Computed example of a mutant assay.
Amino acid sequence: MPAPPITFNGLPSGTRAAVEAESGPILKVDDVSTGLNSSLSALAHTTGGVVFLKGLRADHRWVWTQRREADINPYVTPLAPRLLFHVIADGWDVLGFESVDGHHADYSPGSPDLPKVSDALRELASLPCPDVELRHAEQRLAAYVDHPGDADAFRGDALLHTDWNNHNVLVTEDRAHLVDWGWATRGAAWLDPAHWIIWLIAAGHPPAAAEALTARLPAWASAPPRAVDAFALAGANLWAEIAGTAPDDWTRSLLAAARLWQRHRNDRA
């Protein structure tokens, strides 16, 4: 269930005071639309600059993603915006990040953002996986493969982002930045390009063209074809679960893309 949205001014006074103790006096707040994983999403204009705030109630079932982002941030900057503070006060858990003045990545065919996103994938693949608590890809995807043993192909020691929603990729003049690391995972290095393929197909790339884009990434070279087939099936099953019986346009599009890729893999086999 998505986290119910809240504005900054709707937070308890104790939470607001704790944030300002870290950020400095807040002059203005621009509340922005939240994603599925946070209730609070806002740009706080302070005397020292702009801070991006994201938060969840401290008793929310996904509040662990806040700690995950805080723990992993030192290992993924400057690929990710730098975490400035993490406060837990008056029933809320709030992260404050450096604000990135960029636009959400455009994944459509021919987009000038695609090379920058590819560079971000290469940079991520070059980072060592830190010794912090992370979920494992073979565990996260075990319920979505045909046979439990198929998920063993997703095992690995690479640091993965896994949520390649284009709203999690902010593109500036010089690079792409990855945000929302709450679902960071340990697994096979080729899995992030595989996750990206589904989003590329949803943006209008034919499956073969989407695979051709990832083929330029060194991490993809380590992907055994049968393991990719298993992931394509897992992706289709995962998106079917997310879509449920009454999908909105967004989830319907991703489910259709995942199924299209699965059929492409089956035809190739």
Rank of each mutant, 00 (worst) to 15 (best):
A219G: 01
A232N: 08
W261M: 12
N166R: 15
S39H: 05
P5L: 10
G91I: 05
A105S: 00
L134S: 11
V94H: 01
R216W: 05
A209T: 14
I197A: 12
I197G: 05
A230P: 06
E69W: 05
S108Q: 10
H103C: 00
A189G: 10
R155C: 07
G55Q: 00
R82H: 10
E69A: 09
N9T: 13
R226E: 15
P25G: 02
L121D: 08
I6Q: 07
P81F: 01
L200V: 04
V50N: 05
A230G: 10
A142T: 11
F154H: 04
W196M: 11
G96N: 12
H86Q: 09
P206G: 01
L159N: 09
D119A: 15
D163M: 03
R186N: 05
A21T: 12
A246E: 15
R68Y: 07
P4C: 01
R265N: 02
V169G: 00
V87T: 15
P247H: 09
D119S: 13
T251E: 15
S33N: 07
G48I: 06
D93Y: 03
I72G: 08
P25F: 04
A189Q: 07
P81H: 07
N37F: 11
H104Y: 07
L238I: 07
L260T: 15
D31I: 09
W196Q: 13
T77K: 00
A208E: 15
A194I: 12
A243Q: 09
T172P: 04
W196R: 13
V132I: 14
P193W: 12
A80Q: 11
L254R: 15
P109A: 02
A18H: 08
A212T: 08
A246M: 11
A18I: 10
R226S: 14
R122I: 13
Y75R: 03
A257E: 05
P112R: 04
D267C: 06
L79S: 11
A246L: 04
N237M: 13
R155Y: 01
D71I: 00
A215C: 06
L200T: 04
H103Y: 00
L213N: 02
L141M: 13
H205V: 02
A142P: 02
I242M: 04
L238A: 11
R140D: 14
T65K: 12
A176H: 05
H195T: 13
A212V: 05
A184S: 14
A137D: 10
P25R: 14
L11M: 05
D101I: 04
T7H: 11
G49I: 08
A210K: 03
A257T: 08
R226C: 05
A137Y: 11
G204P: 03
L83I: 02
W250D: 08
K116W: 00
A223L: 04
R67S: 12
P128G: 01
A202Q: 09
N168E: 13
L127W: 06
V145Y: 07
R135W: 10
P207W: 06
P81L: 03
V117K: 02
C129K: 09
D119K: 11
S13K: 11
L43M: 12
A151D: 08
A223V: 04
H177C: 14
L141E: 06
V32E: 15
W196I: 09
P247Q: 07
F97Q: 07
P193Q: 12
